[in-house]
């Protein structure tokens, strides 16, 4: 079951997201993550969607998405050159013993501390899913209170 990162351009209209999501649930495909936002053209949104499936299923997913009237374009980035990023906000306990340690880890992963309280740091990190998993494994022993993650967003690389 290969991972597929699919980027969709869709009409920016109410109900379009539920058409896309409904297609996945109705046909038994799964969604690992999903991100939506407007593009430069306010009438068009980009949905980045990560799913898993063998080649036949991936092909069927792409065809079914294309069939939706409000879907303008479907790109399967998997197997092409592309950049992919997610962001996480991690609220970690900042006990006196660990405060410096946390800051070092954040520095190594080129993250930022975006909120500070006497007891907690909130850290912002962006990167691939692997990178986020790595910093999480470092911070978890210190006591992660809450976490919020975006799904992946991705764009194809331009030819060099």
């Amino acid at each position: 079951m290969q991972k597929h990162t699919i980027s969709l351009l869709v009409d920016n209209e109410p109900g379009v997201l539920s058409r896309v999501v409904g297609l996945f649930s109705g046909r038994g495909f799964n969604i690992e993550s999903l991100c939506v936002a407007e593009t430069l053209d306010p009438s068009v949104s980009r949905i980045t969607l990560v799913t898993r499936g063998d080649d036949v299923i991936a092909e069927q997913i792409k065809k079914q998405l294309n069939k939706l009237i409000n879907v303008i374009k479907v790109y399967d980035l998997t197997g092409t050159e592309y950049v992919e990023r997610e962001m996480a906000l991690i609220k970690v306990q900042a006990k006196a013993d660990y405060r410096a340690e946390i800051l070092r880890a954040v520095d190594i992963f080129r993250g930022n501390v975006v909120d500070v309280s006497p007891t907690h740091y909130t850290v912002e990190v962006t990167g691939t899913a692997d990178k986020l998993a790595a910093i999480l494994s470092l911070l978890r022993p210190m006591g992660v209170k809450e976490i919020a993650r975006t799904g992946a967003i991705a764009l194809g690389r331009e030819k060099k």
């Binding site: 109900g15 539920s18 058409r19 409904g22 297609l23 109705g26 009237i69």
Partner: peptide
């Protein structure tokens, strides 16, 4: 009804 019939119409509108 637009929500209900989304999966059983080719397309629908409100």
């Amino acid at each position: 009804i637009v929500g209900i019939t989304r999966p059983c119409t080719k397309h629908n509108y409100l």
